[in-house]
Structure formats: structure tokens, C-alpha cells
């Protein structure tokens, strides 16, 4: 009964309680919220986080440049079937040719134009939809919250990839439908994260102070809440770009996304299955996926570490773990 008084301030009191809740519940990753939840093996980069983040950003920017400059860089038309078929790398072309006599190197470069912008679009849309739904649910609560959260439950009850496959198959195989399917499975993670963050900040002293000064709900959300939750949402988004690329190329690999002859990395890997001896057909687009995904993950992890108040205390106080 007489224990709860603390006369000394806790320096961490100021940090919103919300972000921790959201992140701690394993909501960071849409994939990880599938049925039997598996957590993305969190990279423990420690003091390498910042340099790796810079490295990742550099690789990411490089890939975006490749996508923009594809017509300039690519030596051949990605669709032209005018080269000797199944040529090994080095025998005239950098990465060899596929079964139809197309230049793998050029296709990998043009592939960046397909997958990266679509993944970015997917993430941006997920963030927008999820953040709006989550913010409304978290701030207004009651019925709105109940309905929104049951919808997210519904989506999250299924394994992400399988649900995306089912939706994509039902919509018909096309790249745009793959993006739509991916969007349907990925916005709930943002809704939940945003809701948790908003809920945590809603009762914070400065939001209440604003309300006592006559702030409308919109003003509270826009002035007091939004600026204080963009950090964690951005972290999730940056970590998700890699996942989005994986998901989109995965759907294409299964024939539910890009249709031939589009130069899309996932479908290129899938082409390679028919010509198993010609390893270069699958390995190079696979490496492209790998480098992009890892690059964006490094960026996301570095962002998370940079924005994590705990990691700052560790740096400030120098406590080694």
C-alpha cells in the first residue's frame, strides 16, 4: 500500500511505452505473424550496426541506380532472344544466356526495374493503409478498434505466404495482382504496430495536456502522436522492403506474379529449374534478390538500433552487455 512513491524521476519515463509493446509482440515482421509464429532471426549487429547500415544503404542506392539506368547499363535487350542459348558466363556474355538465348546480365539489370519499385510501392501502401487504420483504432477505440483488430486477426490467422498465394491465384496471375495480394497480407502488421503505439501515447501526459488545451482528435493525432511514432513505423517499413521483395519474387517464382517474358528475378529463378545444369540462369537473379534483401535489412536494423532508446542508454552509459 505504501510502496509506490518514487521521488526520483526515472529517466526512461519519457520514452513512450507503446513502441516496446508493439515491437516486443513480434509484430515487426508481417511474415513472422503467420499462424505458428516464427520470429525473424533478429540480426545482432551490435557495434557493426551503423557501418553495416551505411553499407546496406550504399548497396540499396546502387541497386536503385541500376534500376533507373537499366537501359544505359544493360548491354542487350532483356527480351531479345538473339544470343546462343545456354551459354556459360564468360563465353561472350558476363552472366551467360538462358534457354531462349536471352542475356542473363541484362535481364538481372532490367529485373531491378520490376521488383524494387513494386516492393517500395507495396511497403508504402501497406504503411499508409495500416497507419491510418491503426491510428484510428488506437485513438478512438471501442467499436472501430474492435472491428479493425478482428479484421487484422483474420488476416494474421493464416500463414502470410500461403494466404498471399491463395489471393493471388484467385485474382489471376499478374504482377499487379501479386502486389495487391501482398498488400492484403501485409497492412495488418502496420495497423497493429500503429495501434499499439497510439494506444501507448494516448494517455501520455503531453497528449492529455494537449487535449486539456482544446486539441481536436485530429490535432492530437497529427501534432502530438504522429511525430512520436514515425520512427518505429519507419523501422518496420525499412525492414519490410526486403520481405516485400522476397514475397513478390516468391509469388512470381510460383507463377503467380510476373508473366513471361518479363524480366523478373523470381520468375527467372523459376526458369532455371528447367535447366538445372545451367546454374547461372538461377544463381545470378538469386544473388540479386539476396543482395537487395540483405542491404535493406541492414538499413532497417541500423535504423532500429539508432532509434531504440535502450541502445542509446547503452551507448551513453557505456554498459557493455
Amino acid at each position: 500500500m505504501t510502496d509506490a512513491r518514487t521521488t526520483r524521476p526515472d529517466p526512461r519515463d519519457g520514452a513512450p511505452a507503446g513502441p516496446r509493446d508493439g515491437v516486443g509482440a513480434g509484430m515487426l515482421d508481417p511474415v513472422s505473424t503467420a499462424g505458428p509464429r516464427w520470429r525473424r532471426p533478429r540480426l545482432r549487429l551490435g557495434r557493426w550496426s551503423a557501418p553495416l547500415g551505411l553499407f546496406g544503404a550504399a548497396v540499396g542506392v546502387l541497386w536503385i541506380l541500376v534500376a533507373v539506368l537499366a537501359p544505359v547499363i544493360a548491354p542487350h535487350d532483356p527480351l531479345a532472344q538473339d544470343l546462343p542459348i545456354l551459354q556459360a558466363p564468360g563465353e561472350g556474355t558476363l552472366m551467360g544466356t538462358d534457354a531462349l538465348g536471352r542475356d542473363v546480365f541484362s535481364r538481372v539489370i532490367w529485373g531491378a526495374r520490376v521488383t524494387i519499385p513494386l516492393a517500395l510501392l507495396l511497403v508504402v501502401m501497406s504503411v499508409l493503409i495500416g497507419a491510418v487504420v491503426g491510428a484510428i483504432a488506437g485513438f478512438f477505440g471501442r467499436a472501430v478498434d474492435e472491428v479493425a483488430m478482428r479484421v487484422t486477426d483474420l488476416v494474421m490467422a493464416f500463414p502470410t505466404v500461403i494466404l498471399a498465394m491463395v489471393i493471388a491465384a484467385a485474382l489471376g496471375a499478374s504482377l499487379l495482382n501479386a502486389v495487391l495480394a501482398a498488400l492484403i497480407v501485409s497492412w495488418p502488421a502496420y495497423a497493429r504496430l500503429t495501434r499499439g503505439l497510439v494506444l501507448g501515447l494516448r494517455s501520455s501526459n503531453y497528449v492529455v495536456s494537449g487535449q486539456l488545451l482544446g486539441f481536436s482528435p485530429l490535432r492530437s493525432l497529427g501534432r502530438d502522436i504522429a511525430p512520436n511514432i514515425v520512427g518505429p513505423v519507419l523501422v518496420l517499413a525499412s525492414l519490410d522492403i526486403g520481405t516485400a521483395i522476397l514475397l513478390l519474387s516468391g509469388l512470381s517464382f510460383l507463377g503467380l506474379g510476373a508473366k513471361p517474358p518479363t524480366a523478373e528475378w523470381g520468375s527467372m529463378v523459376s526458369d532455371a529449374i528447367q535447366n538445372f545444369d545451367a546454374w547461372w540462369i538461377g544463381v545470378f537473379p538469386g544473388l540479386a534478390i539476396l543482395t537487395v534483401v540483405i542491404a535493406f535489412n541492414f538499413v532497417g536494423d541500423a535504423l532500429r538500433d539508432a532509434l531504440d532508446p535502450k541502445s542509446q542508454t547503452i551507448r551513453g552509459g557505456g554498459t557493455t552487455l
Binding site: R8, P9, D10, P11, G316, G317, T319
Partner: peptide
């Protein structure tokens, strides 16, 4: 900021 150190 020193207080952070003490509290931690």
C-alpha cells in the same frame, strides 16, 4: 544526463 547513469 548524469542521472541516467545513476539510474541505470
Amino acid at each position: 544526463s548524469d542521472h541516467d547513469v545513476e539510474g541505470g
